[in-house]
Design a protein around this nucleic acid. Structure first.
Lengths: 190, 190
DNA sequence: GTCTATATGGAGATAGAC
DNA sequence: GTCTATCTCCATATAGAC
């Protein structure tokens, strides 16, 4: 891996575990083994390097979600594959964790990359939920976008609780509970 | 309000919006209008002041949750009151946001206060869910602790999404979807 | 108790040599 | 392209006067 890529990879790594405010250029150089001069040769500064690193992580997340939701098979099975996708639970979401960072919130460029990545996942999710409802695999007693938000909240919130408890149990419980509830028939079928 | 209380209140405020890593002693002094000397007179340093501030915020959250869940009336109504409790959605959860802070995660004292506060809310939630199941107000097709985790995840995740989108819609959608799902009959009643 | 002065180290970046 | 030197500012505190 070349120097530039090493900087990006180390920044992705550190942003994931320490956030933007908690990551210094010094820490990035130490982690990557790259020298001071190279950082400012390839990037204009910390925020520029972070922008590239976050874009990289966002692309990765969107690709992963798309792989689950745009695969073949029944829509409901794709949704379950998305919910049950193997995630590094104790590390949290590399994008979701940045939403709480004060310096990211204050930087419109960085903020929009994060918000956009989540938004794109939501769009894919809404489409797949619509397909599942049309195929009568999901009850139609709520708007697809409303259910999509619950799915994303369950995952993001599960990761928050898992991080706090230093255990994957709250995350797994949350996903399991949501799936159990989705399997219930809606009121119209009573 | 005396000087010490002003320091605590300002620290609570800044930890809420900027996290621990993103909050400097200088910012606390500026926000509170208190002088440098007073901070180190009343507290041993930043982490000591933060500890008191976080304990204060944790007590506040636990009290708020207890007010909803230990009120009179049917268990299911108390659960709905908890889910529908009026929260400052765009500001996020003052405790939940700290779970992602790297310096809090590294400080066992601070970390345990945050984890403990969430855990106590979970315990109250489990108890109330058990009562609702006994009273046949909730389906018994899952463990109370599993459903409790989903409820907490929905709220915490809803706040994450709301922060990212700078809109309360994802949060409100998530809560509404969860309540809709909870109202469905379980499979045994088909 | 609160003030101001001072200290150390790190954040974040620039400059110029190689 | 990468290195080292240097710069300014801020984080986090300590010291001692008032």
């Amino acid at each position: 891996m070349n120097t530039k890529e090493a900087l990006i990879a180390s920044t992705q790594e550190l942003l994931w575990t320490r956030g933007y405010t908690g990551t210094s250029p010094r820490a990035i150089l130490d982690h990557s083994g790259v020298g001071q001069g190279s950082l400012y040769h390839y990037f204009s500064g910390k925020s520029d390097l972070a922008r590239v690193a976050i874009e990289r992580s966002a692309e990765r997340m969107k690709a992963r979600v798309a792989t689950c939701l745009l695969a073949g098979g029944r829509p409901i099975d794709r949704l379950l594959a998305f919910l049950n996708d193997d995630r590094p639970i104790l590390r949290g979401c590399p994008i979701g964790r940045l939403t709480a960072d004060p310096e990211i919130a204050a930087d419109e460029t960085l903020r929009s990359i994060v918000a956009d990545a989540l938004q794109r996942c939501r769009v894919l999710l809404v489409q797949t939920i619509e397909q599942a409802m049309v195929a009568d695999e999901l009850a139609k007693d709520m708007e697809p976008s409303v259910l999509a938000d619950l799915m994303l909240s369950t995952l993001q919130g599960g990761l928050v609780l898992a991080g706090a408890a230093a255990s994957d149990v709250p995350y797994r419980n949350s996903v399991a509970a949501l799936i159990t509830l989705l399997r219930r028939p809606d009121s119209a079928h009573r």
